[in-house]
Structure formats: structure tokens, C-alpha cells
Design a binder for these strands. Structure first.
Length: 239
DNA sequence: GCCAACGTTGGC
DNA sequence: GCCAACGTTGGC
């Protein structure tokens, strides 16, 4: 599979019954609100198909609209069947990525807007995109009065806790690799966490995913009973 | 289509 | 709490 990170992000799909003027549609298309009318569903337009994701959520209490938006990985873990819906996404690009997700896809659960931001664990998609009911709920933190039930704007998926990462991977460490890989052409060179820092649902290349979880090329040395292990430990991410 | 004003995200 | 980056709105 050829992977072009984020090449056509935001272009993807929504069924639009928007009968507005041409310029308005153009404007909306730029924002990702309008579906490509010839979208065949097979991404023949050249858009990249992803299967690994990073999803941000806030593990510390914060009030929005009078509601606490806290939802860390421990909160997901505590839900029945360790499964919950990923609601509240209110950005078109992020929503479009949600809509690309398939059952069994894996994602990093990323803790944002907290003391130590970073990757806390692994989750998997257990239900594909459907209407996010919270957009119609006046009492919800992410109520969207502009969205109508007959033409909902926002989607969500269901995710299930898979496991914690073997250790928490702080943003600072990911950034270190990102900067290095920008020069060396390594797998984290285009990581959206840095190139599109505000995107709350974002794709990862398979290489970036693997690197974060299994470490770099010298990962195996760390497990050898020889002293050289520590020499290479700095080149490894081990989620 | 451009762009100024405004709002939100999220690291620090 | 600050503020840079960037997404959204809406006039023209």
C-alpha cells in the first residue's frame, strides 16, 4: 500500500442534501462538509486508506458548557465491556477520519490538555461511524444547535479498550523523534500530531504505528544481556 | 474567492 | 493563565 500521509485529508465524505449556491458548496467542500458526488466508496480518487489512528481525549476535569468533559483511558476502561462511543468530535476533518474507520482498526488513546500529554494505551474500533446523538442534546458539552436531526452533521464510532501501552509515551518524546525523523526520513517525520497539531482524530502510517509500539531498528539489542543495550535504549519507543 | 474577525485547541 | 496556530464565519 502506498501511503501518502494526509494528502487528501478533509476531502472525504458526507452525504449532502445541501442545495445551496455554488460558492457556498465550494466553501463547504474546502472544509470537508460536502461529499464528493462521484465518490464510489472505493477511494478510486487516490485518497489514502488508513487503518491506524490516534484519538485525543482529555483525562483531566474541565468544564465546557457546564459539563465536565473528562474522559481518560481509565474512564473508557471502567465502562461496561470496556467499550464506549467516541462522541463530541466537532471538526470536519476529524469527523471525516472517523467515517473512514473500519471495525478492528486500532488507535492510540492520546491524553491531551493535561499535565503530561502523550499516548496512554491502545483501543480498537468496534463499531463504524453512526450519528453522534450528543449534537442534538442541549445539555451536552458539544451540543450543536446548527445540526438538524433530518441532516446530522456529526458522527461517532464505538471503541473498545485493548491495553495500556507498556509505558506511557509522552508527547515530548514523540516530538524528539519527530524532529529527528524529519532529517533522517524516519517513520514519525510526518506525524500529524505535529504537522496538524489541533486535529483530534488523525491517521498514522503503519510504519509510525509500529515504531511507536515496537520501537526502532535497535529494539532487539535492548533485550540482549550485554552492556550495549543501554547505548541504544534512547533510540526506542516501546508502547 | 479573499480576508478580517473571531473562536477553539492544546502545549507550556 | 498565556498565547500561537489554525479552523470557522460572514461581509464584500
Amino acid at each position: 500500500m502506498t501511503v501518502t500521509l494526509l494528502g487528501t485529508a478533509g476531502k472525504a465524505p458526507e452525504t449532502s442534501s445541501d442545495g445551496g449556491v455554488a460558492r457556498d458548496v465550494t466553501r463547504k467542500r474546502k472544509r470537508g462538509e460536502v461529499e464528493d458526488q462521484n465518490n464510489t466508496g472505493d477511494r478510486s480518487s487516490g485518497a489514502t486508506i488508513y487503518s491506524h489512528w490516534l484519538m485525543k481525549s482529555e483525562p483531566e476535569s474541565r468544564t465546557e458548557n457546564g459539563v465536565d468533559v473528562k474522559f481518560g483511558i481509565e474512564d473508557l476502561k471502567a465502562l461496561p465491556n470496556q467499550t464506549g462511543c467516541w462522541d463530541g468530535v466537532r471538526n470536519y476533518q476529524a469527523r471525516n477520519f472517523l467515517r473512514e474507520m473500519k471495525v478492528a482498526h486500532q488507535a492510540f488513546f492520546y491524553h491531551s490538555n493535561c499535565k503530561t500529554p502523550g499516548i496512554a494505551g491502545l483501543i480498537k474500533i468496534v463499531k463504524e461511524a453512526y450519528v453522534d446523538h450528543t449534537q442534538f442534546d442541549k445539555k451536552d458539552a458539544h451540543y450543536d444547535p446548527s445540526s438538524k436531526p433530518e441532516n446530522p452533521k456529526w458522527s461517532m464510532v464505538d471503541v473498545k479498550f485493548e491495553r495500556m501501552t507498556r509505558r506511557f509515551i509522552p508527547l515530548s518524546e514523540l516530538k524528539k523523534y519527530h524532529l529527528k525523523h524529519k532529517n533522517t526520513g524516519g517513520p514519525l517525520r510526518n506525524m500529524a500530531l505535529f504537522t496538524r497539531s489541533r486535529l483530534s482524530v488523525q491517521p498514522l502510517t503503519p510504519a509510525a504505528w509500529t515504531r511507536c509500539i515496537k520501537g526502532g531498528p535497535f529494539h532487539w539489542r535492548v533485550e540482549l544481556p550485554f552492556a550495549c543495550g543501554s547505548v541504544f535504549s534512547g533510540a526506542v519507543l516501546l508502547g
